[in-house]
Nucleic acid binder design. Structure first.
Lengths: 325, 325
DNA sequence: ATAATAGGCTAAACCGTTTTAGCCAAATTC
DNA sequence: GAATTTGGCTAAAACGGTTTAGCCTATTAT
């Protein structure tokens, strides 16, 4: 319509008119036609040709998990003023759904992936044809050469929470964790175990339950823990807020008296815990820092800037249950 | 590699081998090669050609909002076995961000949109070049010819909650709502107002505060409500869980005594409310039904099947604060 | 014996960009 | 005056699929 080739139009739109010597007059004429007809280039065709979509994919276990959705929001906010977009899939921490989700994202040509993965190493992910797009692991460490992981210091968090119990001279301290294969659950367990040992307590296998990292998982684990023969614990540490919610529900339904008697502590804080009649200590994971760091890693990788390094973010202890001293 | 044309491969992959008479032997051979080499067709090239991406876009205010994330999850679960995908953007209930988000989604060729919109009517959306793709409004009604909306019966929910207060002979019943332009906030206000009138109470404008549908909004509204001259309310109805959280935080920080004295009720339930020392009635919005309905509307629209109808889902009253009778 | 049909397959256009290589005329250099 | 450079532009391939129209052979109908 401006009497020029599409090559010329492409150059003008992409601001490459200078490099390709297009006359000012032609630029003006083409711009006029573009403005007049409200022409908008197809992002789609562009992405098709360029093999990049300015989209990054986030794969998480559960969008309803408060901590994960805080991460999601941070990443989305960060991403907004970069011209990139976020696409999200959830996997219910199921390996097959995860693979499926990643495959889908790859087929939609995301430029990078942020994964809260259920896999202990990146073999499964290497197997997928990732075309060399960057992957950043969030919340859970994933083994492999050159993997980039952004996580909370789960060991320290669990250690500190457990220490609060041992300082109160509690002995029978139980642990409800997520699946043992997940690095965050494993590290939290190690922190718990070491804090017990430090206090001279022998970890009692009967007081340790691993299950799904969900409300239902917490409910079932609570049932197992509280109905076993060897007697009830004095305190329980749950490895996530979801697990705590399940535990509370179980106690509420089956043995409300326990609610005041057994001390509780949990990973992940929740605002309503301030109002509970029993004081629950918590470890707050800094979703803001974690999300931003993961985002920065992704952007660095995409733009090939400098070394991209893993990061371990310190947790923040929220003490509601003061130790009398 | 199987010694056939890409046409044939395309037919086989899309299950059109039958229509185009491809021999069983050829199908087998092609499949073998596909399996062996792990070939996955590019969804992208496919979408480019077909001008449809099997992706539907969800635009919500805040992914951290528990109710909205329940909706999101339901929709994602529904969508999973349809071969479609979900892409999500959040808008902080900001009109410009909403427009921006929709524009982005359109440029990525979503096949349909589900919007939790801040606009009272669909004029702004019509203005965007939607290429005729279906739009379903969720959670909030949006005016316009032929708009499809899936919402809770907000009026009834608020009415019932308020009625619980009036039956306890409470007189000074306050309302903390979202922005007045939003249909859900408006309808909840109307329900509150009518329940008061039915009980012979004149709505007192000093007891009604509208603000942002967020925790911070609730905090500010609480401040306004509880520091005003005309005296404090006996009861407060918040129009969402986020507002309640803000209100609780404000009370906790500034006047913890109020926590026991003022009765509370809220839209949206939360599991932890079961454990609070003060009993809070709530209206549970059926995220499952709402999400499924929105999804069904979208699918019907995409496939052009039958009439697509708006839906109003009844709320469920959760009574924690029994009326002595 | 010829025409029509059916079975099995493919060539090539198309979607809307980007990009490489190169064309042509005018100006400059040798 | 010929050779080179420069300025201004474009043809055509490429991305990876889908789809239309049609080719060729073998069989069946007339």
């Amino acid at each position: 319509m401006a009497g020029v080739s599409k090559t010329t139009v492409s150059f003008i739109i992409n601001g490459k008119a200078g490099e390709h010597q297009i006359s000012a007059e032609t630029i003006r004429r083409v711009q006029a036609v573009i403005d007049e007809h409200g022409y908008v280039p197809s992002e789609f065709a562009r992405g098709f040709r360029l093999r990049q979509t300015r989209t990054i994919g986030l794969v998480v276990g559960d969008v309803n998990n408060r901590f994960l959705s805080l991460l999601e929001k941070t990443i989305e906010t960060e991403i907004r003023n970069t011209g990139f977009n976020l696409i999200i899939a959830s996997t219910e921490d199921n390996a097959e759904l995860e693979t499926e989700a990643i495959r889908t994202m790859l087929s939609k040509f995301v430029d990078a992936l942020i994964l809260v993965s259920v896999h202990p190493d990146n073999m499964e992910h290497n197997r997928l044809n990732t075309r060399g797009i960057p992957i950043v692991y969030l919340d859970r460490m994933v083994e492999g050469q050159n993997t980039v992981c952004v996580t909370t210091d789960n060991y320290a968090g669990a250690f500190q929470l457990t220490e609060q119990f041992t300082r109160q001279s509690l002995k029978r301290i139980a642990f409800i964790g997520g699946l043992e294969t997940l690095s965050n659950s494993k590290d939290r367990y190690r922190g718990y175990e070491d804090a017990l040992k430090q206090a001279g307590i022998d970890p009692d296998p009967a007081l340790v339950i691993h299950g799904e990292f969900t409300v239902e998982g917490g409910y079932h684990s609570a049932e197992q823990l509280l109905t076993q023969k060897s007697g009830q614990p004095d305190a329980i540490l749950t490895a996530s807020y979801t697990l705590l919610e399940g535990l509370l529900q179980y106690m509420h339904n089956h043995d409300p008296d326990l609610l005041g008697r057994i001390k509780l502590a949990t990973f992940d804080d929740h605002p309503l815990l301030d109002f509970m009649p029993f004081k629950i200590n918590a470890v707050l994971q800094d979703a803001n820092t974690l999300g931003k760091a993961a985002f920065d890693c992704v952007m660095k990788s995409i733009h090939g800037e400098g070394p991209v390094e893993s990061l371990v973010v310190p947790p923040m202890l929220i003490i509601r249950d003061q130790i009398e001293s």
